[in-house]
């Protein structure tokens, strides 16, 4: 019978993610065959760019958190924010083939029907975890998540 914990987690533990530039790209993930993330504005701390490279429909997009299309985005070429997302994703590509595949922008077209609200919501959700406080209640279930 297979092991419910050890074999699966050892692989995960040994997978060392290279640290990305968190200031430049505070959020990055692969979800549903999309490379998506958030890239900081260089000039305003309250502004971020929500970038999506979608392999499902071969499109890319970049919008601010205020729902404005990135001025640097062309229908044929990626903007500096998408470039930053790709370069940070590539830091992981050695370990993760999915990133490598998705980070390729060849044959993709700019798309105004972006998924930025969903991605931005995920980013906000991700940040929320930094604000959440644990209670004193013990959590035996964490034994399922062995770590190094």
């Amino acid at each position: 019978m297979d092991s419910p914990n050890n074999d699966y987690l050892i692989k995960k533990i040994n997978y060392e993610i290279k640290k990305r530039n968190i200031k430049k790209v505070p959020f990055l993930e692969i979800r549903n065959n999309r490379l998506q993330g958030v890239v900081s504005s260089g000039s305003d701390i309250r502004r971020v760019y929500v970038c999506v490279i979608d392999n499902n429909n071969n499109t890319f997009s970049c919008h601010t958190n205020n729902n404005r299309k990135c001025g640097g985005l062309d229908t044929q070429y990626v903007c500096s924010h998408l470039s930053a997302l790709i370069s940070q994703a590539n830091l992981r590509s050695e370990e993760d083939e999915k990133f490598d595949t998705l980070a390729s922008t060849t044959n993709k077209q700019g798309d105004t029907k972006a998924r930025y609200p969903e991605v931005f919501a995920r980013f906000q959700h991700y940040l929320k975890y930094l604000q959440m406080e644990a209670t004193i209640e013990s959590i035996p279930e964490m034994e399922w998540f062995i770590s190094n």
């Binding site: 968190i22 701390i45 980013f123 940040l127 930094l130």
Partner: peptide, 8 residues
């Protein structure tokens, strides 16, 4: 990220 979180 905390700084970013507070701002955003």
């Amino acid at each position: 990220l905390k700084e970013r979180s507070n701002a955003i």
